[in-house]
Design a protein around this nucleic acid. Structure first.
Length: 860
RNA sequence: GGGCGGUUAGCUCAGCUGGUCAGAGCGCGCGCCUUACAAGCGCGAGGUCCCCGGUUCGAGCCCGGGACCGCCCACCA
């Protein structure tokens, strides 16, 4: 590594791997399971799919959670960020099946046992990649304690939950209408179904002279078991209770009355197919109709479909329409919403199937109460309503999946006997239920199963309930709500206190980031550099922004709603790291090792920066508490750039060079606290700088990550200094502006006198920063007068390089501006209503402003 | 069909309980190699705060209506 003198630029790709190693070696991310959950701090990471790779959502959520973990660790808590991955039943099985297909093999050919072995092998090979990627991001997860939703202990937890809920009557098996995914050959839950708008043909089919029905799925008429009309519909009342013959089948079915039927849609007569339509299923149950399944789980027509057996549903539709001939009295295009599987993209086939279900109403009650009572807080609160609404209308959850990869259901059958238990039954002839549980069933146990539940472990005692659960909106129901329900039911109590719902980051063009659309952006390409994907209008390569830059950028982008990805914010983060590094070089290269960091203010700028530092610390704490990560990051940027570097370091520089120990100690103190403050957001660069000066011993306890976050010291707040320096800064801006306006070269030191009593100690600072020189008038005639904030006036004396003619013109323009403002203020004050009704202090402020403007005008 | 959110500078976004709230970063223009940083520094130009009404002494901010964009929930064949 080059000496600090030579390192004029911060190089994240050189620094970050080195720092990562130090953190790993230190064991700092692995807290001992001691103390109580109240004094400890824990977060269970949303488990990424075991074969997944880090995407933008992980990177954002990782940055958020890591900021929280580091923040609380630096406040003395044992901070545990629970790590693990999800077996992700469908997704993983699909991946492995795809690879097998490429090799010309198939799941069925291998058989269940061998196939699951293949998946485990796949996991060995490609799994856990994402864990390394989290590390690259700087995530301070507990890497020594990694869990997997299919590891031994976890399986125990899952089976126990299943058996207990079965014993309590909440889990049951039933023939019920499910969302069948013909592509994957499994049932999926309601939450895995999405509606897509489609234009189909609406067929009107005459069942008799008097009854014509409308349907987009004529093939299902083969399974009709009734025709329904509205009870009050005059057109059909005489037919209620009679029968009608379903075309092509010769089957007579009853004409029933049900309020569900809309009289104003189509003909007002509805064919009822309980086997293949969720509504019809309900009506069928209500009227005791019985059902006929004409479409099978393979998406083909069953034997019940007679001549049409074996055809796909779509082919059957054409054939049925053809066979109906002139019974099809009308065809028209019809746009409606059709269910599709989110998992496979196939059109969902609603059908009746024997599946395992979980009754949710009883579990939902405490989960609703927890949120409405504020025991669990959802941020932003707008999401609370969604959560409650969903739980209040919750329906049974289909938990069985016809897959091989996952937790196999702990139920065995032998003839008419059923055995349910965490251990296999004894005796011969038992056959285990082949289905596995929905992945979200096991994920629902995440915050406590990862801590060793159902054993009464030290981990559980120390870290459950966890503190924060941070995730995106899309799994609020799928995952968060279920964790709450199961958390109450099993370990008892809430699983986490705060739920933070973060933004979804969209592609720069506003589309969803997705691999298939080609709109995804790889966080690692941003960290380490790499080609810009085509969603960017600008081509070329990303510079290596570094993990800190990416973390900062993502936090700065985040909000309570979805946001577009902004490379500029990441660049801003990288700029901040470079700025902080270089500011540190200035300080460290000029403050000898013998000087101890300490707040030893001896000038107004010292008092000012110390006061501003207290404000920065207080604001950061508020923003962490409010989950306002964008302001946390941007506030840090403003402090480091806008106050520390742009002003304080420039102001203090000469004293630093002169060996002023008070200045050196104070600057070191400010740097040290700034590093700590920034660490949760940009951990690498801060740790690196820390090591250069403050991490003396090099031991684990000497890491910045292990330090105590400095608190706010109210004794160092100094409103007077803040006002004085703020005024000076404004004055400097005005003077610089004035110089520009008269085209005065930067090198020229302008001779002038300064009048006004607001500047005090700051007067020489104004001179230096604005490149002026306060002189006695010595009989010289001032050539220009520049009023400056704070009520003072700068009288410019003849100086070589200062064009006083230009200054005159500038003065005239300024006079005009002031006259305009005075007019406006006078107008406002002559408005009787304003004077009468506006708060007195506002009116006074306006008067003061007017006086000030007049004084400025007079001074010109 | 319900519900929620958005519309502010060329771009991405801040703007708290109505009164310096018209802002930031990037981009753009001009000027500076000022001994921490040229991936830097200084200065500047850019906006009918979506539209129309209303409340108010005063409205990006509140109310009513409208337009456009996005998301969530939902069993009208």
């Amino acid at each position: 590594m080059a000496g600090l003198e030579e390192r004029t630029r911060y190089e994240p790709s050189e620094v970050e791997p080195r720092i990562t190693q130090r953190w790993r070696d230190s064991g700092i991310d692995h807290p001992e399971p001691e103390g109580t959950p109240d004094e400890n701090f824990s977060i269970a990471v949303p488990p990424p799919n075991v074969t997944g790779v880090l995407h933008m959502g992980h990177a954002l959520n990782g940055s958020i959670q890591d900021a929280l973990i580091r923040w609380h660790r630096m406040h003395g808590a044992r901070a545990k960020w629970i790590l693990g991955t999800d077996h992700a039943g469908i997704a993983t099985q699909k991946q492995v099946e795809k690879r097998l297909a490429e090799q010309g093999r198939s799941r069925v050919e291998l058989g269940r046992e061998q196939f699951t072995q293949e998946v485990w092998k796949w996991r060995e090979e490609f799994g856990g990649q994402i864990v390394g990627q989290f590390q690259r991001l700087g995530a301070s997860l507990d890497y020594e304690d990694e869990r997997f939703t299919l590891d031994e202990g976890y399986v125990k937890a899952v089976l126990k939950v299943f058996v207990d809920l079965y014993d309590d009557g909440l889990i049951y098996r039933d023939h019920y209408m499910v969302n069948w995914d013909p592509g994957l050959g499994t049932a999926v839950s309601d939450l895995e179904v999405e509606e897509r708008e489609k234009t189909d043909t609406l067929y009107s089919i005459a069942y008799s002279d008097e009854i014509t029905v409308a349907t987009v799925r004529p093939e299902t008429l083969l399974g009709d078991t009734a025709v329904a009309v509205h009870p009050d519909d005059d057109r059909y009342q005489h037919l209620i209770g009679t029968t009608v013959t379903v075309p092509l089948t010769g089957r007579d079915v009853p004409v029933i009355a049900d309020e569900y039927v809309k009289t104003d849609f189509g003909t007002g007569a509805l064919k009822i197919t309980p086997g293949h339509d969720p509504n019809d299923f309900e009506i069928g149950r209500k009227h005791d109709l019985g059902s006929i399944s004409v479409i099978g789980e393979d998406g083909r027509m069953t034997a019940e479909a007679g001549d049409f057996a074996g055809l796909t549903a779509l082919d059957a539709r054409a054939k049925v329409v053809e066979a109906l001939g002139d019974k099809v009295v009308e065809q028209q295009p019809y746009t409606h919403n059709v269910p599709y599987s989110q998992r496979s993209g196939e059109r969902i086939e609603p059908l009746i199937s024997l599946q395992w279900f979980m009754r949710m109403d009883e579990l939902a009650k405490p989960a609703i109460e927890a949120v409405t009572s504020g025991k669990i807080r959802i941020h932003p609160p707008t999401q609370q309503r969604r959560y409650v609404d969903w739980l209040e209308n919750i329906r049974p959850w289909c938990i069985s999946r016809q897959l091989w990869w996952g937790h196999q259901i702990p139920v065995w059958y032998r003839g008419e006997e059923t055995y349910v238990g965490t251990e296999p039954p004894t005796g011969d002839g038992w056959e285990r239920d082949p289905d596995v549980l929905d992945t979200w069933f096991s994920s629902g146990l995440w915050p406590f199963a990862t801590l060793g539940w159902p054993e009464d472990t030290a981990q559980l005692k120390a870290f459950y309930p966890t503190d924060v659960l941070s995730t995106a909106r899309d799994i609020l129901f799928l995952w968060v709500a279920r964790m709450v329900m199961l958390g109450f039911r099993f370990p008892g109590d809430i699983p986490f206190r705060d739920v933070y719902i973060h933004s979804v980051i969209q592609a720069p063009d506003g589309r969803r980031m997705s691999k298939s659309l080609g709109t995804g952006i790889d966080p690692l390409a941003l960290i380490e550099g790499g080609p810009r994907p085509p969603v960017f209008t600008q081509g070329g390569e990303f510079p290596a922004y570094g993990a800190d830059g990416v973390r900062f950028g993502l936090l700065a982008m985040s909000s309570t709603q979805d946001v577009r990805f902004s490379e500029e914010k990441v660049a801003q983060g990288a700029q901040l790291t470079n700025k902080l590094f270089n500011a540190s070089r200035l300080i460290l290269l000029n403050a000898p090792d013998t000087v101890e960091p300490a707040a030893r203010p001896s000038t107004v700028e010292d008092r000012w920066i110390l006061s501003r530092l207290q404000a920065a610390k207080a604001e950061a704490a508020e923003r962490i508490a409010a989950f306002d990560f964008s302001k946390l990051a941007l506030g840090l940027y403003d402090f480091v750039f806008g106050e520390l570097c742009d002003w304080y370091l420039e102001l203090v520089k000469p004293r630093l060079y002169d060996g002023d120990e008070d200045a050196q100690a104070t600057v070191l103190h400010v740097l040290r606290e700034t590093l700590a403050l920034a660490h949760p957001v940009i951990p690498f660069v801060t740790e690196e700088i820390w090591e250069l000066r403050f991490g003396a011993g090099g031991g684990p306890g000497d890491l910045l990550a292990a330090q105590q976050m400095p608190g706010v010291d109210d004794a160092l707040r100094d409103p007077a200094a803040e006002t004085q320096v703020a005024t000076a800064i404004e004055a400097i801006r005005v003077l610089r502006n004035w110089r520009e306006s008269i085209d005065c070269k930067p090198k020229v030191i302008v001779r002038a006198t300064l009048s006004g009593d607001a500047y005090g100690e700051a007067a020489p600072l104004i001179a230096r920063m604005a490149r002026f020189e306060w002189a006695g008038a010595n009989g010289d005639q001032p050539g220009a007068a520049v009023p400056i904030p704070g009520g003072g006036v700068v009288q410019v004396l003849p100086t070589e390089g200062v064009d006083l003619g230009a200054a005159d013109r500038k003065r005239d323009a300024e006079r005009k501006r002031l006259e305009g403002e005075i007019k406006r203020a006078e107008g406002k004050l002559s408005n009787e209503k304003f004077v009468a009704k506006a708060p007195a202090e506002l009116v006074d402020a306006e008067r003061e402003k007017l006086d000030r403007l007049k004084a400025e005008l007079a001074a010109l």
